[in-house]
Amino acid sequence: MSCWDTIADYGLRSLGIGERLLPRDNFTLCQQVTLIGSGMIWNVYFGTLAMVSGFFLATAVALGKAAQSPLLRKPSEWFIFVFRGSPLFIQFFFAYFLFLSLKQTHPIFEPFTAAWLGALIVLFLNTAAYSGEIFYGALQSIPKGDLEAADAYGFTGWNKFRRITWPTMLRLAWPAYTNEAIFLFHATALVFFSGFPAWQQRGDALYYASYFADKTFNPFIPYPILAGYFILLTLTVTGLFGLVNRRLNRHLPQQSRSKLRLRPNLLR
């Protein structure tokens, strides 16, 4: 069986397309690379959707935390505190069992107990809290002069926010936000280890990597493959965010443009 056959059989295995049974013995390198790569589809899915949807909530939360009225400020502060102060792992477990017991009374919650929706919601809220804090910090450090200049030009309300405050906030927050995006993609590896079942063995990359490690009792092949995939993913994310960063900074003189500086990644 050539490697192409393996890719045809297992390339989309994580979505349930292709061969039903996972390989059981005589694992080839090709099988491991294909299956783990197939699992990466889920990591990209969770990461991208949570990132995009979380972005909007994060902006709202950041504005809420900076608001004068305690009615807006307190909920935002608590939201950020709860999601940043507790382990993501526990949040996954709690959400899973919460949805499970809601399902008993309201059948409408049926899809929430599956990873594709339930875990996505947790990741969405989690990343919204983390990036909300980043955006809040950036919002606080917008130069006073920029806002005064906006006032002088007669910008008010939504127009001022849309054209001055928001772009400046994004520009200042972007390097930290890039790191947050990388954290988020790494955090997606937790999903199938935290209650959410991998239905019909459709798991993410780490799920397959640990499957191989368990079966062969040899961690030295699947985990480096996984590491390779994640490094590729990290590089892609960094590249995309770098493009946005360039656009956000395009009006500044060459020297004062902020470079993206990557800090080491910590888990949460």
């Binding site: 780490l206 994640f230 990644n265 910590l266």
Partner: peptide, 23 residues
């Protein structure tokens, strides 16, 4: 040593090291 922990999800390291150390 410092650089190797970057770029890879840490949970993978946890799973990896326990087996690798045992072996």
């Amino acid at each position: 040593y410092i650089a190797i922990v970057r770029g890879v999800p840490d949970i993978a390291f946890f799973l990896f090291f326990v087996l690798a150390l045992d072996i």
